[in-house]
Design a protein around this nucleic acid. Structure first.
Length: 450
RNA sequence: GGCCCGAUGGCAGAGUGGUUAUGCAGCGGUUUGCAAAACCGUGUACAUCGGUUCAAUUCCGGUUCGGGCCUCCA
């Protein structure tokens, strides 16, 4: 199944062809670890997790690199605010990040490099840029000179003139061009710093991804992924650094960007304060339902997040789980399902195929049920067995599984004696406790409604 | 100011130049001691104004509205 991806660089869908036969290298920008991630941050995690799962299914070898940014002024600030060490802040944030990702069924990348572990490579890259005349030193900073690159701006579709005209921020006086950006900056005694040819300092934001992608993938690699808001300046500047330092025409050949998560139509963001952290979402909802909700819109379209959207996702999963039953996954996913995913990761269409398979399964087609599981698994869904999904986990202080079974047994006796008043009383009691009873041909099963 | 994206039925959300999206909600039916689940059937749609066409929700242009980037941001 030929994979097609919307390439931001070309502004159109293209057939995906890896640089090397049988191997795909993909890099995604990971978190800056100063705070818990929110649902908006979770979207690229889930979306690109699906992309990688699909790639692994189609290619013998895939290297997925997702970095961790552990040097950043926001980190310094937050550590100071909380009066803890930078190291402690990073470690605890990374731990939470991993827990959040796991709760959303996001698989770990092959490599998760940390910026602070690659300072030497960044310095080497900056030296190369200076040697080639693409960077200059000024007042302890090293800056990239965007005027030295012919096609600077090609990813974000803007010209030097546009950027000069649109400069809304005060431009540092030592910059030759308003759009020049920092590769290295000086650190005072309070800020983390590393020795360099330009004195003790720390890297600018963009250089880490250029350095680490070259270390773990190559000077040119297949796919670079990230959020829409990274196109400019982050990814644009990565391209400038990598191509100029390496003398290459391209950094990544396919650039894929996910759309925003919105709240009432507005971008979810830290600065607007309209965010829901993944931790908070998981207090109210199951991780798999949040994941489904994030896949329920096409990855490039905006996705409006609300509790209602997750509740709906949960209902959809209920239906899929019930349809799949205890049938185990087929060898291969459904062809229509794969076709949908292969067409620029059309997850909403892929999910609709899942529902079609569910309908067939409910009509008694066990092959469809097996195909349903196999297909859903590729999306990281339906990985539990039906019973554990519908029963969920008992909340603190709620009825235990044993207590529920006891009441059901009592109800069965009442029913056998045709004492339906007592039977219904038990149903009502359990219903009030959030337990639904399902009378079937071979006994009564139950589900937790949460 | 520059650049970019979107507008689909009650809600969410795909897709298509002429033919069923899908899920939830609604309605009718089958089934059920009750309830659910499930199945069958069913209604509601493509912002607006022009243009191209035998035919446009789908292509082109204008308008309106919404969102985003240009500064940290997934």
């Amino acid at each position: 199944m030929a994979l097609r991806l919307f390439n931001t660089l070309a502004r159109e869908k293209q057939d995906f062809v890896p640089l090397k036969d049988g191997h795909v290298g993909i890099y995604a920008c990971g978190p800056t670890v100063y705070d818990n991630i929110h649902v908006g941050n979770a979207r690229p995690l889930v979306v690109f997790d699906v992309l990688v799962r699909l790639l692994r299914q189609q290619y013998p070898s895939v290297t997925y690199v997702r970095n961790i940014t552990d040097v950043d002024d926001k980190i310094n600030q937050r550590a100071a605010d909380r009066a803890i060490s930078i190291d402690q802040l990073c470690e605890e944030t990374i731990e939470r990040f991993h827990a959040d990702a796991e709760a959303l069924y996001v698989k770990a990348p092959d490599v998760e490099p940390r910026a602070t572990h690659h300072i030497a490579e960044m310095i080497a890259m900056i030296e190369a840029l200076i040697a080639k005349g693409h960077a200059y030193e000024a007042e302890g900073h090293v800056l990239f000179a965007i005027g030295t690159m012919d096609d600077y701006g090609k990813l974000s579709n803007r010209t030097l003139e546009m950027m000069r005209a649109g400069a809304r921020v005060e431009v540092a006086p030592y910059k030759r061009d308003a759009g020049d950006f920092v590769l290295w900056k000086p650190s005072d005694d309070n800020a983390p710093g590393w020795d360099s040819p330009w004195g003790r300092g720390r890297p600018g934001w963009h250089i880490e991804c250029s350095a680490m992608s070259a270390v773990y993938l190559d000077k040119e690699f297949d796919i670079h992924a990230g959020g829409l808001d990274l196109i400019f300046p982050h990814h644009e500047n990565e391209i400038a650094q990598s191509c100029c330092a390496h003398g290459t025409k391209a950094m990544a050949h396919y650039w894929v960007h996910n759309g925003y998560v919105t709240v009432d139509g507005e971008k979810m963001s830290k600065s607007l304060g309209n965010f829901t952290t993944v931790r908070d979402a998981l207090e109210k909802h199951r991780g798999e339902a949040v994941r489904y909700a994030l896949l329920n819109a096409h990855y490039r379209a905006p996705l409006d997040y609300s509790d209602g959207s997750v509740t709906e996702a949960k209902q959809a999963l209920d239906r899929l789980y019930r349809a799949a039953g205890d049938v185990s996954a087929a060898e291969v996913a459904d062809a229509d399902f794969l076709a949908a995913l292969s067409d620029d990761l059309n997850t909403p269409l892929a999910l609709s195929v899942l529902h079609r398979l569910a309908k067939q399964a409910n009509q008694g087609d066990r092959a469809a049920a097996a195909s349903l599981r196999a297909s859903a698994n590729l999306l990281g869904l339906l990985t539990q067995d039906e019973a554990s999904w519908v029963r969920g986990e008992a909340q603190e202080g709620a009825l235990s599984d044993d207590e529920i079974d006891g009441l059901i047994e009592e109800r069965q006796k009442a029913r056998a004696a045709r004492d339906f008043a007592r039977a219904d009383e038990i149903r009502d009691t359990l219903s009030a406790a959030g337990i639904a009873l399902l009378d079937g041909a071979d006994g009564t099963s139950w589900e937790r409604q949460s």
